[in-house]
Nucleic acid binder design. Structure first.
Lengths: 186, 186
DNA sequence: TATCTTTATGACTGATTAGTCAATCAATCA
DNA sequence: TGATTGATTGACTAATCAGTCATAAAGATA
């Protein structure tokens, strides 16, 4: 791992443990095994490091979800596959996923370019639009559907994270949970 | 408003704007109109202030939801009424509700007594248990239902907060959203 | 090897912060 | 009125932190 990646990974872990402002840059540098000043060669400021940690996680997750898509036939199959991948990734990277939540409820969210947020959101919105067009989804406001899907998915993640569930049962819960969701908005 | 309340209300606003660690106690005191040292007469430490802000919001919300219950006949009516009240309260106190979310994703959550968390959760769990017993809800794990209901409710709040919706339409969205939820787990 | 360029270092600084405490003020009551 | 009590004040301190910079190490080039 190069220094930049190491700094990001370390900071994610520490931010999770101690919060953004509770984590000194000096500690991040130390635990990443670089000198204090080196951190500021890779990141203009602490805020910049936090923002880059956020985008790096979003991109990593996005890449994973993309690579697990095998081109399901129906829009519904596609949607289930995407959401299932997302939950799986989140459960395999709980620290990173929790970081995202922490970030989303922090004042740093407002520092992210609107364009960047848009970029991460668009694929989902397009899917929803298509499902509405095909009359697969109820004709509810697109934004409402998006929010409900996100919340529901997050809820399933939270349940699986908080309650020890055997690996094979895990897939069953995901399957069941997604079917409930689909049924709800279809 | 007495000083203690003023300090809590002020801190909630500032924590929302600048985050927990981004808000100095000196600023909280200043904006609450008291001296620096006075804050530490009411709160042992900054952490203690944050924890008290959290519990005070939870109690305030709990009291509101309780007073709006008119003793609906069915368990389903009761549940809808509780959730509807919760969303209404949240929309009327967005700062406080956002504070709760911020707190929930922060490391401070772990400092709250397990007993306290249990106290806030129990009424909801009891309702869910009753609904399962009456075979009104699907026989899914109680914890899963709880998490899905919470997430869904939070999703509706988020949608209504992010999108300008006229007051009368608001109730319609809440009604529709709750019906979707109920249908899903019934 | 000698020279140049890039990367890394960590001591240092100026600014900020949580929490303290001696002094002041306000309220109550004999 | 004068004494007692408790609340309030804000200057102060010891500690911490983000970010800098002069120096050194490592790497590239010829």
């Amino acid at each position: 791992m190069d220094k930049q990646t190491r700094l990001i990974e370390t900071s994610i872990r520490l931010f999770h443990e101690k919060g953004f402002h509770g984590t000194p840059t000096s500690l991040i540098a130390k635990e990443a095994g670089v000198a204090n000043g080196t951190l500021f060669q890779y990141f203009r400021s602490k805020e910049n490091l936090i923002l880059q940690a956020y985008t790096s996680i979003k991109e990593e997750m996005g890449r994973y979800v993309e690579t697990t898509q095998t081109g399901a036939g129906t829009i519904m199959g596609h949607m289930k596959s995407v959401l299932s991948s997302s939950i799986t990734w989140a459960l395999d990277h709980p620290l990173k996923f929790d970081f995202i939540q922490q970030f989303h409820t922090s004042p740093y969210l407002q520092k992210v370019e609107q364009e960047t947020i848009e970029k991460y959101k668009r694929p989902h919105m397009d899917m929803i639009q298509e499902a509405i067009d095909q009359k697969v989804f109820k004709p509810l406001p697109k934004e409402l559907i998006y929010t409900l899907i996100s919340s529901h998915t997050f809820g399933m993640y939270q349940y699986l994270r908080a309650n020890e569930v055997a690996s094979h049962e895990r897939n069953e819960v995901i399957e069941t949970g997604l079917d409930l969701l689909i049924k709800m908005i279809s």
